[in-house]
Computed example of a mutant assay.
Amino acid sequence: MTWLGEHFLALRSAARQLGSHPLGSLLTALVIGIALALPAGGLLLLDNAGRALGETSGRPEISIFMNEKADRAASDEIARRLDNDPRVASQRFVPRDEALKQLAESGLADVINDLPGNPLPDAFVVMPKGEDPVLFNDLRETFAGWPEVAHVQLDSAWIERLHAMLELGRQTVMLLAFLLASALVIVTFNTIRLQLLTQRAEIEVSRLLGATDRYIRRPFLWQGALQGLLGGFIAWALLGAMISALSEPVARLANSYGAMFTLQRPDALQVAAMLGIVAALGLLGALLSANRHLRLAD
């Protein structure tokens, strides 16, 4: 028999074994699915939270203030450099007279009228390509070294705080995921161990007939992988139900802030990764359990 045929027979045996105990298999899959849905849902909610905060808070900008004595030629040179910088998404020149007019319209007209002249410099409002704090710091250092630039002001403090909070949340969820992954391996280990003890007599007979440990172990490995895969599908269903339940309250909250926001569901790649990981964890638990049992049975 070919290698593929042997695995097909082992897969069929594992599926038949799971089907022979439907309630126990379902309960084990539910435990795996709930344990997997917790970190997966946490990461999904963190991604949605970061996207929501980014949309409601607006895009961060960089303000470049020119020297008071800088002429229009110097401003044109800065505009040319900004247009040629691949890290800049857009730039807008704000003449000093326009800036003073905007300041007066904001309610400070009486104060401005008492000034002897216009104290405001020409400025540029720059929109970078991205919201990475490292990108903002690099651009600030670049802009500060240009001629006739007096000051560069970043609007990225809230971005740094947001990234720090989201990173803390992700690290916490990843730690939880590691602990739950260990629990999944233990659950599968114990399930396969009980199955091995139940089939002890069959295993001894198979060995007497010349079956190798690899042949004996193969169906149990498939059983662990299938058990994990079933738990992964349950976790996917739980995530879908959670998103459906939260979509309407989240949309109402976003509308109260004048924003349009919907929760994003996991894409096909994320679902495939989740199923692959949980199947691998089930396989690992089954492998550890089968190896230990067969070694003790020698």
Rank of each mutant, 00 (worst) to 15 (best):
L9A: 15
A10G: 07
L11K: 02
S13D: 15
Q17A: 15
L18D: 00
L18N: 08
L23D: 07
S25D: 10
T28P: 04
I32S: 03
G33A: 06
A35S: 15
L36H: 06
L36R: 01
A37R: 09
P39R: 04
G41S: 05
G42Q: 01
L44Q: 10
L44F: 03
L45V: 10
G50Q: 04
G54R: 14
G58T: 02
F65L: 04
F65H: 12
K69S: 14
D71A: 07
A74S: 09
E77A: 14
E77G: 11
I78K: 02
R81V: 01
L82R: 00
A89W: 07
R92F: 11
R96A: 08
D97N: 13
A99E: 11
Q102Y: 03
L103A: 12
L103P: 10
A104V: 08
E105P: 02
S106F: 02
A109S: 14
D110F: 01
I112C: 04
N113E: 15
L115T: 09
L115W: 04
G117N: 14
P121K: 08
P121H: 07
D122W: 03
V125N: 01
M127A: 12
P128A: 01
G130H: 01
E131D: 15
E131L: 04
D132F: 02
V134S: 09
V134A: 13
N137L: 11
F143A: 00
F143C: 03
G145E: 04
E148L: 00
V149D: 00
H151E: 15
H151F: 15
L154R: 00
A157H: 05
W158H: 07
E160G: 13
L162W: 10
L162M: 08
H163W: 10
L168P: 02
R170W: 01
R170D: 01
R170M: 05
V173C: 00
M174H: 11
F178Y: 11
A181F: 09
F189R: 03
T191K: 14
L196H: 10
A201T: 11
E202A: 14
I203K: 10
I203V: 14
E204M: 07
S206Q: 14
L208I: 07
G210C: 07
D213I: 05
Y215A: 10
R218Y: 06
R218W: 08
F220P: 07
W222A: 01
G224M: 03
L226N: 01
L226A: 10
G228K: 07
L230Q: 11
L230W: 13
G231H: 06
I234L: 15
I234H: 05
A235R: 09
A237K: 00
L238R: 02
L239K: 02
A241W: 09
A241I: 06
L246K: 12
L246S: 07
L246P: 03
E248Q: 12
P249T: 04
V250D: 05
L253N: 03
M260Y: 13
F261M: 06
T262S: 13
P266Y: 06
P266T: 02
A273F: 11
A280R: 06
A280W: 12
A280C: 11
L283H: 10
L283C: 13
G285F: 09
G285C: 09
A286L: 01
S289R: 11
S289P: 10
A290H: 06
H293P: 06
L294I: 01
R295C: 00
